[in-house]
Design a binder for these strands. Sequence first.
DNA 1: ATAGGGTTAG
Length: 598
Amino acid sequence: MAPFVIACVEPHLVPIHFIFIRFLNPVIESIKHDVTHTFSALFLSQPNVFTHQRIRFEDDDITLSPAKDIMLAIRNRCQLNSEDWSPKDKSFGNKNAPYAVFNALDSMLKDSLERLKTMRENISSVKIGLQGYTCENNYIEHTATIRFLCLEGKLGAALWLRRKMVQKGILPDVFTHNHIVNGLCKIGLVEKADWLIREMLEFGPPPSCATFNNLIKAYCVVNTVDKALYLFSIMANTGIQPNRITCNILVHALCQKGLLKEAKKMLEDILHDDDDKDVPDLVTSTIFMDNYFKNGETIEALSFWNEMLQKCAKVDVVAYNVLINGFCKSQQTNIAYGIACEMLKKGLLPDAFTYNSLIGALCKEGNTNEACYIFQVMSKMGIMPDQISYKIMIQGLCFKGDIARAKELLRCMLANLMVPKPLIWNLIIGFYGRCRDASNAFFTRDQMLAFGVRPNVFTYNALVLALLKSGNIYDACSLKEEMPLKGLYPDVITYNLLIGAACNLGRVGFALQLHGEMLQRGYEPDLITYTELLKGFCIRGKMKEAEELYAKILKSGLLTDHVPVQILFNMYCKRKDPVVAFNFYQDWLASKGRGYPY
DNA sequence: ATAGGGTTAG
């Protein structure tokens, strides 16, 4: 992908890089060949291994070819991606880009040389493995491979290799197992990780505190804190002492669920006989401070900060970031700014989180000039803006209507070899949609596709909006039909957009047809759907249907804003039914008094 | 060596 992006950004730089590729390619190819052969030899000595296997687990199964994955794992360390090498799109020529591109080329060169080095090392270690075939060498090599496979997310292969080792009577150590547990959790196979820990408890190696922490964290992430707590109790039963990290994982999860009191209680219980319980843990305090800021309780948050300053040996960048973000979120950007300066004076360097918080706050204030300035400062301080920085800036600029600068930043990303996530493209497309500029919306979508970014439901909804705003309901509907062909499905927003547009055109029949289709496909209409339909009935003067629908809304308990009420009220007024309108209004007030939300 | 807190979310 990287060379492809360079090609698009700076076509005139192609020759330099091309020479570079041409120079390295024969070397790379010969080594790739060498690696493949050495590995084939290694694996072919075991007949069943090379055939593609289907590994079946108790509760799930993953189709994979472990040997291939393992070989790829080794080769990936050596691979230079020279495939996508074609200068296609020349529309991104930008005079400011060469420096960035040279930097990128420079780092790619270093990277490639680095890869060549590891490749040589790998080959020699494989050859040692073949000739010597000592157990110790194999053990080190295999556990390293397992770890690498886990980092790559190839857990099927990692588990397979582990099983092979176990079958040969060699048990990988607890660190290797922890990598597998962590890897399984990262790709969402939490149950599988749970199984592995049970396996470890039964057959060894005995799980460590870190093993449990991995799984406890995973259960918290998928919002099954009860399971995490259960695991916590298992831990105690098996004689493994929970540590600070265990506490922090659980405290964090409980706080996020709004169970602050429970979190504090648990902490007290665990730290009951801890000698230095008077010295607060920096991470724990940071979690509490963040939680209080998020609940809008600034004074409590600050009391944690003061305690940290007094009792902790030193505070760190994360603690400062929580403080800065807290003030940013409460729209006290100047204070946040001041704290960032104080942080610098203490010798703590702000990181991407710090800058992103500040930029976000400035954008929210509408101060995009200042935000742009901080954005530049960030780069000068050596912190490269990440996808989030760009997202915040582009969103702020689009909101302000400054599409020129927003697009400039998009170009900047591409020049820095960052491929913008769909969200960022969607912001630009959404802007054009709101401006009724369907042609630029689709042009941006095409650029997105050209950079290999797949549109998502939000992209389609933005495009549907663009078409509807420019009065083209027919094409908007075709777009909805196109979605399943691309593996995407319209959602409630898509339907609401179309239903709303149909109603505005007075085509209530068509709106109802869409509503029916929505129900048929299993989508639950929401308040917006009903509000749009209500509007449609009122526009066509179908008072009976409107009133029936309103009754349905009331009954469903969906009425959480005043819009449907206002639509009906305006209708009664327009129809010169002042008495009806007044009574309706009175009824609504009374229902509010009885505890209805609106 | 592995595990903990902070920035986005249409």
